[in-house]
């Protein structure tokens, strides 16, 4: 805890003057909208109509809404597919750039570049890469394989978006792992080497246990992020979520349902509450992982 004792002779108002801007912004633009979202989820409010209380009607409607189930499936699938990749690949990458060999600072920086770019830019870059006549299909053709219509088929499109998400996150999680790897005791690795353990064995029985808590942290961070996916899919599949809306994610549904002059604010709020509850569940995982870190 901060050592606040001893400060007494200040004007009673000054701490709140310091706090005021922060509290005001957070209260007005985060907490109030949050409370309002929860309240509106129980009303039939529309964009131009305040609406009245309808109980759990919105939540009931959700259960019968195929669009809701499709988007929930897509967001959940996103977590299931993306998270294992973001836990394992950046760790391997961190091991690769861990040693101080000449030029390694350049490689580390270069691997981080996709993190700096906005998701819109990254999405557009990959739309072009994966285009019917783009670079990837050119390479595939050169290798004798046929063309793949990455952006035409709803499943391929979703998987392509997932790959882009993983690609964009590689450098970010690599940096987290690098910090963790710096703390792996050197003698453990050496002992394993003396015992004649090969690189795979050393990885599985020394490195992985040593960075286990970081892996949990990365898993939790990336699952929260993956569940809230919006921009990649929006840019790559279009505002309507690809062919027949099959690629809509939960956040995309919130945006589709809740915006526009006829936006169904009440229903959109109910979907937002579901989104919040599921994300909170994933976040609790973060806090638990964090606590393990401290031990």
């Amino acid at each position: 805890m901060p050592p606040a004792r001893g400060i007494r002779r200040q004007l009673p108002t000054s701490p709140w003057l310091f706090m005021a801007p922060g509290i005001l912004v957070v209260a007005a633009f985060i907490l109030f909208p949050f409370v309002s979202t929860v309240w509106k989820s129980f009303t039939d409010a529309r964009m131009l109509v305040p609406g009245g209380f309808v109980g759990v009607a919105n939540y009931r409607a959700m259960l019968d809404d195929p669009a809701f189930w499709t988007s929930l499936r897509n967001s959940a699938l996103y977590v299931v597919m993306v998270v294992p990749c973001t836990v394992v690949l950046p760790l391997l990458l961190a091991l690769l750039v861990r040693r101080q060999i000449p030029g390694i600072a350049f490689f580390r920086a270069a691997f981080y570049t996709p993190v700096v770019a906005s998701v819109v830019v990254v999405g557009l870059i990959w739309v072009w890469m994966l285009d019917d006549r783009g670079l990837i299909n050119g390479v595939l053709q050169a290798l004798g394989a046929g063309k793949v219509d990455f952006l035409g088929d709803s499943w391929l499109l979703l998987f392509s978006a997932m790959a882009v998400t993983v690609w964009k996150g590689l450098g970010y999680y690599m940096v987290i792992y690098l910090a963790a790897l710096a703390n792996v005791p050197r003698d453990l690795v050496e002992a394993a080497e003396v015992d004649g353990a090969g690189p795979v064995r050393r990885f599985l029985s020394v490195t992985v246990p040593a960075v286990r808590s970081t892996m949990v942290l990365v898993a939790a961070l990336s699952s929260v992020a993956a569940f809230k996916v919006f921009t990649e899919v929006y840019v790559m599949a279009g505002p309507n979520g690809g062919p027949a809306g099959e690629d809509t994610t939960l956040v995309m549904l919130v945006q589709q349902v809740g915006t526009g002059l006829s936006g169904r604010v009440g229903y959109s709020s109910a979907i937002s509450v579901v989104l919040f509850v599921i994300t909170l569940g994933l976040m609790l995982l973060v806090l638990r992982a964090d606590r393990k870190e401290d031990m």
């Binding site: 633009f29 309002s36 979202t37 509106k40 809230k228 919130v254 809740g258 604010v265 994300t279």
Partner: peptide, 10 residues
């Protein structure tokens, strides 16, 4: 992402 619509109304 879960409060954007309310933020817009605000």
């Amino acid at each position: 992402e879960s409060i954007v619509i309310s933020q817009f109304l605000t």
